[in-house]
């Protein structure tokens, strides 16, 4: 994660009216606190995980599995997806950011509430990368 991306996340945080964010991934641990100095603890680097078994939110926004102009969700449980295909949207102000499949695979149950605010890292769908049992 670059300094530029962290600045980006801080901007989104402020735009969303939030003041704290904690983010943990296999490579990174990030704690942002707007307007204060947050204590930083050393974190042991963990080995990189394989392709995740869920589709996660990559931003803070409203979870929209259905486009505002459509009646049906973009994907149904059990549907096969190709890498990069759009499974849902996160609405951030007027922007609709796509939630995409990281690899070919089968999408499972929806794990988040449609229309609700989700945070960075929230699990949105079960997802079985191609070649693995669901």
């Amino acid at each position: 994660m670059t300094a530029e991306e962290i600045a980006q996340i801080a901007t989104w945080l402020r735009a969303a009216g939030l003041d704290t964010l904690e983010l943990t991934s296999p490579q990174t641990r990030l704690r942002l606190k707007l307007g204060a100095v947050a204590p930083v603890k050393e974190l042991a680097v963990q080995p990189a995980a394989a392709v995740p078994s869920s589709l996660d939110a990559r931003a803070t926004g409203l979870f929209l599995p259905i486009h505002p102009w459509c009646e049906t969700p973009l994907v149904q449980p059990g549907q096969r997806m190709e890498a990069g295909e759009v499974a849902a949207f996160l609405r951030i102000g007027p922007l609709l950011q796509p939630v995409t499949a990281p690899s070919d695979g089968i999408v499972g149950r929806c794990l988040a509430t449609p229309g609700k605010l989700v945070g960075f890292g929230t699990k949105l769908f079960e997802f079985s990368p191609e070649g693995k049992a669901p």
Partner: peptide, 12 residues
């Protein structure tokens, strides 16, 4: 790719 969208003004 796959791009991004805007909320249509009819709903905004």
């Amino acid at each position: 790719a796959p791009g991004f969208g805007a909320e249509p003004p009819q709903t905004a």
